[in-house]
Amino acid sequence: MATLDLAAPLRQWIIEQAQAGREPMDVVDAMVVEGWPQEKAVDAVQEVLQALLVEHARANGLPEPTVVPEPMERGGPHLLDGGDRRVPVLANLKHPRVVVLGSVLSDEECDGLVALARQHLSRSETFMLDEGVSKVHEGRTSEGMFFTRGENELVRRIEARLATLCAWPLEYGEGLQVLRYGPGAQYKPHFDYFDPAKPGTAGILANGGQRVASVVMYLNTPEAGGGTTFPDVRFEVAPIKGNAVFFSYDRPHEMTGTRHGGAPVLAGEKWVATKWMRLGEFV
């Protein structure tokens, strides 16, 4: 978005509204009442608030925030456009930025991904940023595999839906990862971004830059356990077939509150597909 030529008094007014705790869309609505076109009002509020966040980060020695995927406007509709289907919002957290989505995938799509992935599973690995390599780690006890982006018609359809839903370029997404968790399997709480302080991070960021959002889609409903947990805010998403949880992180820092994990499966098995979104094109 190009920088707007906003008068200093307007910028200051928007800052004062934010500091007073007003929601961004309430500020936009007030500007529309004063004659601003809604699209320009949204751009103005976004620009001023983003600049405010950058200023705060620089003043406090924090990573600067970036623009991230966003499936819904604050205060916006609760039935979202996925291109080829409408997707209902089931839960909506502001911080951490978490949106629980219903019926992102059909039963047939879930079953299709499981069938395609099942024959290619191997023990899941974790990228060890201290060493710059992927290896099996005790904190992650699932089996998994990756599809390359656009590998088949089913994957292409799902990827296009997610790109539309999250308002993020398809080319900025990693390939889908499918995971199977058997009884007792889990993924201990962690962050999905790559820690810039670790020696192995520079190499992995060379392709696509930093991760900025995750979408975890549930391909079946386990008999018990297996929820996606956000322990810092005591929030857990039930793993219901076809549903998904989206969460974004505007900087690689724990202040995003997006530490999450896969709770142990207590009965049955759990299948998920994960899409990670990057700041730039991933090849």
Score class of each variant (00 low, 15 high):
117 A>R: 04
118 R>N: 05
118 R>F: 02
118 R>A: 06
119 Q>G: 04
119 Q>I: 03
119 Q>P: 03
122 S>M: 00
122 S>C: 01
123 R>L: 01
123 R>T: 00
123 R>M: 00
124 S>Q: 02
125 E>P: 02
125 E>H: 02
126 T>I: 12
127 F>Y: 12
127 F>V: 07
128 M>Q: 13
128 M>E: 15
129 L>D: 13
130 D>Y: 08
131 E>P: 04
131 E>M: 11
131 E>G: 04
132 G>Y: 15
133 V>Y: 08
133 V>H: 08
133 V>D: 11
134 S>L: 10
135 K>S: 15
138 E>H: 12
139 G>A: 14
139 G>D: 14
141 T>H: 02
141 T>R: 04
142 S>W: 01
142 S>P: 08
143 E>D: 09
143 E>Q: 09
143 E>A: 02
143 E>W: 12
144 G>N: 01
145 M>E: 07
145 M>W: 08
146 F>M: 08
146 F>A: 03
146 F>G: 03
146 F>E: 05
146 F>I: 02
147 F>W: 08
148 T>Y: 04
148 T>M: 05
149 R>V: 14
149 R>N: 10
150 G>C: 11
151 E>I: 05
152 N>A: 12
152 N>E: 09
152 N>I: 08
153 E>L: 10
153 E>M: 10
153 E>C: 12
153 E>P: 10
153 E>W: 05
154 L>V: 03
154 L>I: 05
154 L>S: 13
154 L>D: 10
155 V>S: 13
157 R>N: 13
157 R>T: 11
158 I>M: 14
159 E>Q: 15
159 E>G: 11
159 E>F: 09
159 E>R: 12
159 E>S: 13
